[in-house]
């Protein structure tokens, strides 16, 4: 039997489903995984819907999506298989500066998909969601210091492996430097 609470939940999900799946995708880098995470969170939310303030529902669900994503990564704690970039590609690459921008974006997106889940979540929350270090820390259940160090590590990896280094004039890592350690 459906009641008013049920209807409220259904209205919320109908309205916010695409945004939530896109958000989860940005955290996971995998569409199937993203939909599964959002479904799992929504099922739990459904049971608690009567206790959740409507004006805070989206924030509540997004926080739960972050937690679910990171928790699943923790549960896979020993072996971690990171899939290659699976995001749908947009239309054909245009010529000129736009093409270069698209190439940078593609390269960065591919590298983002390879970041460990927690590090990727930090990047998504800080730079896509525009959340502060403290907010990000609160969502991920860690300290701002951890957010800072994870952000720095992500930056180092992206600079090392993508054309981002060209944006800031950072020289590419000298392959010979690595060989010195061999």
């Amino acid at each position: 039997m459906r009641d008013a609470t049920d209807d409220g939940f259904r209205a919320f999900v109908d309205a916010r489903w695409p945004a939530l799946v896109r958000f989860a995708w940005s955290l996971t880098g995998d569409r199937g995984h993203a939909e599964d995470v959002v479904q799992a969170v929504l099922v739990r939310t459904w049971r608690r819907w009567g206790r959740i303030r409507l004006d805070g529902a989206e924030a509540y669900v997004r926080a739960a999506v972050v937690n679910e994503t990171v928790s699943r990564a923790r549960r896979r704690r020993v072996r971690e298989v990171v899939l290659p970039w699976t995001g749908e590609r947009p239309e054909p690459v245009p010529a000129g500066d736009a093409a270069e921008d698209r190439a940078v974006a593609d390269s960065v997106a591919a590298e983002l998909a390879l970041l460990p889940p927690r590090m990727r979540a930090v990047v998504v929350l800080r730079f896509l969601e525009d959340r502060s270090e403290a907010e990000t820390a609160a969502l991920l259940g860690c300290s701002p210091g951890t957010v800072k160090s994870q952000t720095n590590r992500a930056m180092a990896r992206l600079r090392d492996r993508t054309p981002l280094r060209d944006l800031v004039g950072v020289p590419a890592v000298d392959a010979a430097a690595g060989e010195e350690n061999r």
Partner: peptide, 29 residues
């Protein structure tokens, strides 16, 4: 090497994530 993200880097990362999001064709609930 600076450990601070530059605005250009932030924008590139934001753009990379946003492009992927926008390209998703999310189906019905």
């Amino acid at each position: 090497m600076s450990t601070t993200w530059t605005p250009a880097e932030e924008e590139a990362v934001r753009s990379a994530l946003a492009v992927g999001q926008e390209a998703m064709d999310v189906g019905a609930v």
